[in-house]
Amino acid sequence: MALSPSKPISVYVFDAYGTLFDVHAAVRKNAEGLGPDAQRLSELWRQKQLEYSWIRAMMNRYQDFWTLTEQALDTAFAMVGTADKSMRQTLLDAYWQLDCYPEVPIVLKGLKDRGAKLAILSNGSPAMLEGAVKAAGLDEVFDAVLSVDALKTYKTNMEVYEMATTEFRVFPEAISFQSSNRWDVAGATAFGFRTVWINRTGNPDEYSDLAPAAVLQDLNGLLTLA
C-alpha cells in the first residue's frame, strides 16, 4: 500500500534498529561459533530487548538501552542452552557496528538531494547510535540523531515522538516517520505523524485503528512516495 501525503513532507524521521540497522547481523556473523540454535538466540535477544524497554517505561524505572541490550542477551543465553556463552562479548562488540540494510545509503541520499531533513529517533543510547551511524558511513547524512535517553523513557511514550517536532519546529503532519516495528508505527500514528511501516519480514498487520499511511517491504519505496 502506498498513499501520497495530504500535505508536503519536509522531514523524514527513522527508527534505527530493524529499520536502518539489521538487529540480527551480530548473531548472523557469529552463527557458526554459537551453534545450531543461533537464530533462536537472536530472536530472543531482540524480543527481550524490546520487552525490557516497554516494562521499564511503564514502571518509570529507566535503564539505558545498552544496559537492556546486555540484560536481554544474558536472558537469551539462559533460554538457549546450546548457545556458546563464551561468545557473549563478541556479540556485544558486534552490536556496536551492525550492518545497515543495503538500500539505506542510496535512499537517504536520494531524500537528502531533494532537500528533505533527515533524523533518527531511537530507543538506542547516544553512544550506540553514534557507533552505528559511524560504522555505516552515515555521519554526514542526518540533521539530527535523537535518543530517548534525553527523556529517560522509551517508545511509545508520546513525549518521545514530540522530540522530533521540537527539534525541527514543525507540526506532526509535516513529518514522515519510518519504522519496521508495527507497535512503533502505531505510537507515531497516534502522535500525528504520517507513518510508513517498513514490513521487511511480511508480518500480518496489527493495531487496525492506527493504520500507517503506507506499507513498504523496504525503504526503496520512500523515493516514490516522496
Rank of each mutant, 00 (worst) to 15 (best):
D113T: 08
W66K: 11
K85Y: 15
M128V: 13
A174V: 09
R182V: 09
G115L: 09
V133G: 00
P102V: 05
A190H: 07
V170M: 03
F142H: 11
A83D: 09
L118V: 01
A136N: 04
A116G: 04
T69H: 12
A127R: 15
K152D: 08
Y101N: 09
K85P: 14
V80C: 14
K109V: 06
T67R: 13
I120F: 01
L118A: 01
P126M: 06
Q97I: 10
V141M: 08
A57V: 09
V80E: 11
T165A: 05
Q178D: 06
A119P: 03
A119E: 01
M59E: 07
N60G: 08
W96C: 15
F77C: 05
L92I: 15
A83V: 11
G137N: 00
A72M: 11
V160W: 02
R169D: 14
M87K: 04
E70D: 15
E167A: 05
L146I: 06
A150G: 06
S180C: 04
K117A: 14
T156Y: 05
T153D: 06
L151M: 10
I175R: 02
L92T: 13
G115H: 10
M163K: 01
M58V: 12
E173K: 07
M163R: 02
Q178M: 08
I120Y: 00
Q71R: 12
W96I: 14
A190W: 03
S180G: 04
D113Y: 05
T67G: 11
T156C: 06
D93N: 15
A116F: 07
A174C: 11
S180Y: 01
D149W: 09
A190N: 08
G124I: 05
M158R: 14
S147A: 12
L129G: 01
F191A: 02
M158V: 13
F65A: 11
L118G: 02
Y62L: 07
L121R: 02
S180R: 00
D143Q: 03
A57P: 07
D143M: 03
D139K: 01
M58T: 10
L73H: 12
I120D: 01
P172R: 04
N181W: 09
L108V: 00
Q71C: 10
F177C: 03
L73A: 12
F191W: 03
A132N: 15
R169A: 14
M158K: 13
A136C: 05
L98M: 13
T67I: 14
E130R: 10
E130V: 06
V104M: 02
E130D: 12
R114Q: 06
L151K: 07
D184W: 10
K152P: 08
A190G: 08
F191Y: 09
E162Y: 10
A78G: 08
I175A: 02
K155D: 10
M158A: 15
A186I: 00
M128E: 14
L108F: 01
Y62R: 07
D84F: 07
M58G: 09
F191Q: 03
A164H: 00
G124K: 04
D93Q: 15
A76L: 03
A119I: 01
Y161T: 01
L111M: 02
K152I: 09
K152Y: 09
K85W: 15
L151I: 07
I106A: 13
A119D: 01
D184S: 11
A144Y: 02
A57S: 14
T75I: 05
A144C: 04
L108M: 04
R56N: 13
D99N: 02
D184L: 12
L73T: 14
F77Q: 06
D93Y: 15
